[in-house]
């Protein structure tokens, strides 16, 4: 009897774990315009040309209005089942992580942690969906009002998946903090409505991802090499057509050295009911190319939930 109960319990846990798609992470990031117009910017010389970049750390440390808005938005999103990643905390974590990485070593040999230059580059604050935020308290005579722009950007496809923008009611009595709170309350439902449409579309037509096929240098083959009378690029495109949801994908660009696929719709769950991301999905192509007649080794490189690169030639 005990065995039956434990079997049922394990099955239920397995179903609940595998029946769910990978949940995207969301983070509020002040827009470049917001940071740079308020002086939260860094400038550096890139071989003669001046580059201006937003300084998020300075913005979050000095701008109380920004923190108020982010805090309000976080509360609303957590209530809807999407606790936001906190940019300030993420930046702090990265700083302490770097310090710890440089100090950590093994007990027996004193060996440090292996980290390639690309690993170090990947240690940045990132999320799957960025809530790009701009706002400004404006004045009309004695009255103040808040103009508010919120864009939800898919970090991989660069598409604007949800947005809400507008200006609040002018008021001469209300404090700035109250106007800012009102601005968030006024536009978050509209934003979440659009975000929900984006999720519904992903569940219906598949998650939209970006796939890049690249070549390592000095290989004795390229994407124009022929296998069974067809070029390698044709074989790859046929594989994409067979495996993308309803065969939906778009070949953005292709040469003998690279192929770029956009708007590739991959299933949210595989046939076993397990969650799928771009890396997991393209791994099947990696296996396909490793087989006869291609016998091609490749390196799978992940760029988050929605973008993966397959670099042909070596591991």
């Amino acid at each position: 009897m005990r065995k039956i109960i434990s079997t049922i319990a394990i099955t239920l846990v397995a179903i609940s774990l595998f029946g769910q798609a990978k949940k995207p992470t969301i983070m509020v990031v002040p827009s470049d315009q917001y940071c740079i117009s308020r002086g939260y910017a860094m400038e550096y010389d890139n071989m003669g040309s001046k580059i201006t970049l937003p300084d998020y750390k300075a913005a979050l440390q000095n701008d109380l209005e920004l923190k108020l808005i982010i805090s309000k938005m976080s509360g609303i999103m957590a209530d809807r089942g999407f606790p936001l990643k906190d940019l300030e905390q993420e930046l702090k974590n990265l700083a302490t992580q770097s310090a710890e990485m440089s100090m950590l070593e093994s007990k027996s040999s004193g060996s440090g942690i292996a980290e390639s230059p690309i690993d170090a580059l990947k240690r940045t604050a990132k999320s799957d969906i960025i809530m790009d935020l701009s706002f400004e308290v404006k004045k009309v005579g004695p009255k103040k009002y808040v103009s508010f722009i919120l864009n939800g950007l898919d970090a991989y496809t660069s598409k604007n998946v949800a947005s809400a923008a507008g200006a609040g009611q002018p008021s001469s009595a209300a404090q700035t903090e109250i106007l800012l709170e009102e601005a968030v309350l006024a536009y978050m439902d509209e934003f979440n409505g659009r975000l929900m449409s984006f999720f519904e579309d992903a569940f219906e037509k598949g998650r939209e991802v970006k796939i890049r096929i690249k070549m390592f240098q000095n290989m004795d083959f390229d994407l124009e090499s022929e296998y069974n009378d067809d070029e390698l690029s044709e074989h790859i495109e046929n594989w994409m057509a067979d495996h993308a949801v309803n065969g939906r994908y778009n070949t953005q660009d292709a040469t003998e050295n690279f192929m770029q696929f956009e708007q590739v719709r991959i299933p949210m769950l595989n046939e076993k009911g397990r969650a799928v991301d771009a890396r997991g999905w393209i791994r099947d192509l990696q296996k396909y190319l490793k087989d006869d007649p291609f016998m091609i080794e490749s390196k799978l490189y992940m760029r988050g939930l929605g973008e993966a690169w397959l670099i042909l030639g070596e591991k």
Binding site: A164, G166, G168, Q169, E182, L185, A186, Y187, D189, E190, F191, G193, M196, E200
Partner: peptide, 17 residues
């Protein structure tokens, strides 16, 4: 049904879609 934008608020969609 939801509510159209107005009164300083953005559009509010229906709870049941």
């Amino acid at each position: 049904k939801g509510f159209p934008a107005g009164g300083g608020s953005g559009m509010v969609g229906a709870i049941v879609r």
